Simulated assay, not measured.
Amino acid sequence: MSDRLKALADAGVSIWLDDLSRERIETGNLAAMVDQRSVVGVTTNPTIFAGAIADGERYDAQVRGLVADGADVARTIFELTTEDVRNACDILGQVAAATEHDGRVSIEVEPALARDTDGTIASARALWAAVDRPNALIKIPATAEGLPAITAAISEGISVNVTLIFSTDRYREVMEAYLLGLERARAAGKDVSEIRSVASFFVSRVDTEIDNRLEKIGSDDALALRGKAAVANARLAYAAFQEAFAGPRWESLAADGAHAQRPLWASTGVKNPDYPDTLYVTDLVVADTVNTMPEKTLDAFADHGEVSGDQVSGRGAQAQQVFDALAAVGVDLADVFTVLEDEGVDKFAASWDELTETVQQQLDRAAG
């Protein structure tokens, strides 16, 4: 086991792998990463599944069976992806049994439903029933339409990974949706101790968008702020997390066994080669969080990442100074977060189209 990854885990950061494939499952690679690399969870998305299915022959037998059964592309995607997540949940079952929060595997509702509350709720129910594992998480986007779907899913006892969070304002709404869902679940007589949730706060995309704007502004003050926004944004989010999960309302739920909705740092692969390749891991070390990494980032941290204690707690005021400086040089932060959410929804929809095309090719080949 990498000493650096162990140090990260010992600091209270749960390491989740942002990748899944049937090859990882069947070759024992995923189990080895759990045993040897401190990985305690998995996140997925349509792009990950598209790559896995396009490159792997391990799906062929199931695809042939689905063709023989007359399955269309939508059903095929559903069957292939839920089987992978179900099997990954089984591999991580011991982690889930041994820890309070971890051992979780995420699967996403169809991205086309990002603006459809009722459709998202129906998709979440279907995925939860199909995976049929208590350590699954259903990914629901943090759009305005997704917020009531989050509450509905939680109220029914469905564990949720809320995705595509970019701003602290929206993050506060996500936490409110979660708390309201817990309260409704408790009122309905459900065991809230069985419900888990994480809130996926996207990191690198914030720097990419804001850095582009800073470079267009071009002043010395603006250029000096490059590479600072994403970490500051995440630190503000953590301060909001600490605020939301404290006080009488939360204490009442916690007394009945409820679990806090931990922040999950997503999109932690560094896009700018001028920045350290472990930036969004090293600078966001803090207890009670998850960092979901592509394997490239995990390997980089295992090789040369540094853990120098808590890098987040108590830094909210410093992070706010960064945001004040961004506004002062002319960055429209409200527009930044609107653009990022819209682009995030569009990118996930494009990923779904890619997955659909990939699976249709597999169906056509299997049909001869």
Rank of each mutant, 00 (worst) to 15 (best):
Gly189Val: 09
Leu253His: 09
Ala130Ile: 11
Ala260Leu: 03
Arg186Gly: 13
Glu243Val: 05
Asn161Pro: 12
Arg249Ile: 09
Gly157Leu: 03
Ala149Asp: 00
Ala224Met: 10
Tyr238Val: 06
Ala129Lys: 15
Ser155Cys: 06
Gly227Glu: 07
Val198Tyr: 00
Ala224Tyr: 14
Leu223Val: 10
Ser193Cys: 09
Ile158Cys: 02
Ser155Glu: 08
Pro141Asn: 13
Asp220Val: 07
Ala152Ser: 12
Leu180Met: 10
Ala130His: 13
Arg262Asp: 07
Ile158Gly: 01
Ser204Gln: 01
Val206Ala: 04
Ser123Lys: 09
Phe245Pro: 02
Ser123Arg: 11
Glu243Trp: 13
Ala255Thr: 06
Thr208Val: 11
Leu147Pro: 07
Ile154Thr: 03
Ile165Arg: 00
Leu164Val: 09
Lys190Ile: 09
Arg186Gln: 14
His259Asp: 10
Tyr238Thr: 05
Asp221Thr: 12
Glu243His: 12
Ala229Cys: 13
Ala142Val: 01
Val131Leu: 08
Ile165Gln: 01
Leu164Ala: 06
Leu214Tyr: 04
Ala188Asn: 14
Lys216Asp: 14
Ala232Ser: 11
Ser193Lys: 12
Asp256Glu: 06
Ile210Lys: 09
Lys216Glu: 14
Ala142Phe: 00
Ser197Leu: 05
Leu147His: 04
Lys139Ala: 02
Pro248Val: 04
Glu173Thr: 01
Val198Ser: 04
Phe202Pro: 01
Met175Lys: 13
Leu214Met: 14
Ser123Trp: 09
Ser197Tyr: 07
Gly227Arg: 05
Ser159Trp: 04
Leu225Gln: 08
Asn135Ala: 08
Leu214Pro: 01
Tyr178Glu: 07
Ile195Met: 14
Arg262Cys: 11
Ser219Asn: 12
Leu264Cys: 05
Lys190Gln: 14
Asp220Tyr: 03
Gly157His: 08
Arg205Ala: 14
Val160Met: 00
Pro248Lys: 10
Ala254Ser: 15
Glu215Lys: 12
Ser219Val: 04
Asn212Asp: 15
Ala149Tyr: 01
Ile140Val: 15
Met175Thr: 15
Ser155Ile: 05
Ala149Met: 02
Ile195Cys: 15
Pro148Asp: 05
